Every structure is written in C-alpha cells, then in structure tokens.
Computed example of a mutant assay.
Amino acid sequence: MELPLVSIIIPIYNSEKFIAEAVESVQKQTYHNWEIILVDDCSTDNSSSIVLEMMQKDERIQFHRLNTNSGTGIARNLGVSKASGRYISFLDADDLWKPKKLEKQLNFLKENNLPFTFSYYDWIDEDGELLNKRVEAPQNLSYRQLFFCNYIGNLTGIYDVSYFGKMEISPIRKRQDWMHWLSVLKKIKKAQAVPESLAFYRIRTNSISASKLDLLKHNFAVYRNFHGYNFGVSLLCMSGFLFTQLIIKPLYCKSI
C-alpha cells in the first residue's frame, strides 16, 4: 500500500544561516514520502544558491521564487498552490523537525480518524542550543481556547487536504499562522495534539517572538482586522488574550 504524500511548505527570506539544517531535518525523517516546496521571498543573501544545490541531490525538493518581497503568507500560499500531497505541513527556514515528526503525526491522524493535528515543541537559540523550555498545549484544544492564545506552533501543524482542501493563508505579514489555525478549528471545533515534542522552534533576537510589545500590537490587529471586531470589542478580546498569555499559557510551558 502506497503511503500518502506529505507536502512541506518552507518560506525563505535571507535564511542562508539556517536553511540547509531545516531541509536536512526533513530529509532525516523516518517517513520518506514527502516533497519540500521552498518559496524564496526575494532573499538578498545566498539562500537560493544553497537550496538549488540541495535540489540537485534530492528530487523531492522544489524551489520557487516570488517576483517581489511579499511576506510569509504570500510565500506560503504559493507553496500550497504547488503542493501535490494529501497532507500539508509547514516549517520555517530557521526551525527544525525531530526525526519521527511525520511518522508519529500521521499515525496519530490515522489512529484517531482526524483531519488535523499538531504537537508540542522545544525552544532552541540561534546556535541550535536547547533553551530548556518545552511549549505544550491543551490535549483537546477548542476554538475558544485558540481564540485567546495561539497554542499551535506553526512548525507542528499538519492537515488533510482531502478534508479541508488547500486552505488559503492570510497575506497579512504578521500572525497569519494563528489566523490559519483559527480557520481550521472554526471548521472542526476541537483539535487533538500529539502529546510530545516533535520539533525545535528557534528563538532569534530580531524575531516577533522576541518583542512582546510588537506581539500585542499584531494580536490586536487579528481581532480588529481578521475577526472584524470594532475597537472596543477588540480591546475586550485583548484583555482575554493577556489573561491567557500571563496566567494560563505559562502552565503549558515546561522546563526540560
């Protein structure tokens, strides 16, 4: 019996320091029926050269380039449009997967008859060293819970195209991953997590994760623009977000 193909979308922007390691973490998967679709968002470094060289050695790797710098959402959408797999998964150019990530998630989907799942993940620094922190999530994550906090690490999500179709990603430059998973849970109501860490999320000093003030601003924009709430309702939603972020989510962040 032929195993289903998994399409892995990796957007690239000036990622020469990390991209080879990210691709290699896919190549080391114990599940082998996958394709990588890399989309370069007009990098000005050697990212594309590194990828093109890797393509010559692995026919499962595709490479596409945007004509203008358009943001991660647009890059991911181009990748999704090129995908041939039954399943679509995402990985950023500076993050990594553990070797059994795909195998364990696909088994979990099949055993529980699910169209979507995600997993826990660990933090690493820019040099790939463990930061001794694991981000977990509610085992049965509801839309309401996700509404007030993005528990789903984008590098861990995987969905069944035969159930959802190819889902469009918001072109908004920030927090489009949260909006994407909200759209998933709006359809299925609850999501089950694989209850173990299957990936490494890299914390970078210039990343959105490193700026709490920017995070608040972009999350407010999700309530205001994605959900379409007025200013007052968006402020109320942000109060719920802050409560969850400060009181509830830390309960799911473990030292390892």
Rank of each mutant, 00 (worst) to 15 (best):
K100N: 15
D41S: 05
P11W: 01
Y13M: 05
F148G: 06
L213S: 15
G79N: 05
M238K: 06
F18R: 00
S170I: 02
N69E: 14
G153D: 03
L141Y: 02
L52A: 12
I9W: 00
L246M: 13
D95M: 02
E111C: 12
L131D: 00
N150M: 09
Q27G: 14
N132G: 07
S84P: 10
W123A: 10
K133L: 06
P195C: 06
R173T: 11
A75I: 13
L130V: 04
S119V: 00
E111D: 14
F63I: 01
A210L: 12
H227M: 14
R224F: 08
S234R: 04
S255T: 11
P99T: 09
F231A: 10
L235D: 08
I8G: 00
S207I: 01
D160T: 10
K104F: 08
G71D: 03
T205N: 15
V194L: 03
F164I: 04
I152W: 04
K187C: 15
K17V: 08
S197M: 04
N46W: 08
Y87R: 06
T72A: 14
M238Q: 07
Q176A: 13
E24L: 14
I88A: 02
F18I: 03
L242H: 04
M1A: 14
D94A: 02
A199C: 08
P115D: 03
H218P: 07
F148I: 08
E126K: 09
L52N: 15
N33P: 14
V161I: 07
L216H: 07
D122M: 00
E196V: 03
A75H: 12
L78Y: 02
Y13R: 05
T44M: 09
H64K: 14
E126T: 10
M54P: 06
Q192D: 10
A199P: 04
Q56M: 11
H227A: 11
A191V: 08
K174P: 05
I50N: 03
C42K: 12
P4T: 09
G228F: 05
S25Y: 00
S47C: 12
S7N: 03
F243W: 09
C237N: 09
L38F: 09
N154K: 12
E53H: 13
K101M: 15
V233Q: 08
F18L: 06
E24Q: 14
V194N: 00
I50W: 01
P115N: 03
D40L: 06
F147V: 13
D160P: 09
R134V: 02
H64M: 13
V233E: 07
W178L: 01
V26W: 02
D125G: 02
I12N: 10
I8Q: 00
V194W: 00
L182W: 14
